[in-house]
Simulated assay, not measured.
Amino acid sequence: MMNMNNKNQKGFTLIELMIVVAIIGILAAIALPAYQTYTQKSKFTEVVMATTAFKTAFEVSAQTGEFSALTDADAGTKGLPPAMSTATGRVASVNIADGVITATGTTEVGGYTYILTPNGITAPIQWTKTGTCVAQGVC
């Protein structure tokens, strides 16, 4: 006759499994919002990069003396590219007016704005980043 006390038990108890499931649930609840912000930030990079042509053109035009003041720096004039008003990819629009570059994302990236403001028209030009994307932490 077998004695039940001498029998070797293998495997996990129900409590141990419940603890593991609870830990995984807590980690998922923390990780999912962080992952969603990360993916939105990576998608918004397309909007940030859309300002590069305007920024570079502004700096070149400023260094070659095209501008007498910031009010001269408008899209489509004095070596600056024309405004982009047709949505392309995740970028809804990009414009430069009085030297201030404003890019807007599509609804896929929250419709946030990314704004670059120069400190003037003399080198070295420093840019101040503002817009609704800053508060959301996606740019």
Rank of each mutant, 00 (worst) to 15 (best):
E66T: 11
T45H: 10
K43D: 13
Q63V: 12
I96C: 03
A28R: 04
S85T: 15
T52V: 10
G110N: 08
P118K: 06
V134E: 11
W127L: 05
N119D: 15
I121T: 12
F58L: 08
S85W: 00
A73V: 12
A53Q: 13
I30G: 10
F67I: 07
A83N: 05
K43H: 14
G65R: 03
T128F: 05
Q63H: 09
S85A: 10
A62E: 10
T117C: 08
P124E: 04
T113G: 03
A57F: 05
I30E: 02
G25M: 02
L32N: 10
A87M: 07
E108R: 11
T128Y: 05
P81H: 03
A135V: 06
A97I: 14
P82K: 08
A28C: 13
A97D: 10
S61D: 04
T104D: 00
V134L: 02
S93G: 03
S68C: 12
K129R: 11
T56I: 10
T104S: 00
G105N: 01
R90V: 13
I26L: 12
E46V: 12
G110F: 05
I101Q: 02
I125Q: 14
A135Y: 01
A29P: 11
E46F: 01
A103Q: 06
A29C: 09
K43R: 14
I96S: 04
A28F: 13
I26T: 13
T39K: 14
G110P: 12
K129A: 04
F54L: 01
T77S: 14
A53F: 04
A75T: 13
S93F: 01
L116F: 00
R90H: 11
T107N: 15
I24Y: 03
I125Y: 07
T39S: 13
P81T: 03
T39Q: 15
Y35W: 11
V100P: 09
A29R: 06
A123H: 09
S93V: 04
V60K: 14
K129M: 07
V60H: 10
A31G: 14
G89M: 04
F67C: 11
P118C: 05
L27D: 06
C133W: 01
A34S: 15
V60D: 07
G79M: 06
E59N: 10
A69G: 12
A92T: 09
T132P: 08
F54E: 01
F58R: 11
A34G: 15
G89V: 08
I125C: 09
T122H: 07
T88N: 15
Q36S: 10
N119F: 06
P118N: 02
I26F: 12
T51R: 05
G89L: 00
L116R: 05
F67D: 10
T88S: 14
V91N: 02
T132G: 08
V100K: 14
Y112D: 06
V94F: 05
I125S: 12
T71A: 15
G89Q: 00
L116S: 03
T113D: 00
Y114L: 05
A53C: 04
Q40D: 10
I96A: 01
T39N: 14
E46T: 15
T106W: 06
S93R: 05
P82Y: 00
I30Q: 08
F67M: 09
L80Y: 06
F54N: 12
A34E: 08
T102A: 01
L70H: 09
I101S: 01
G111A: 07
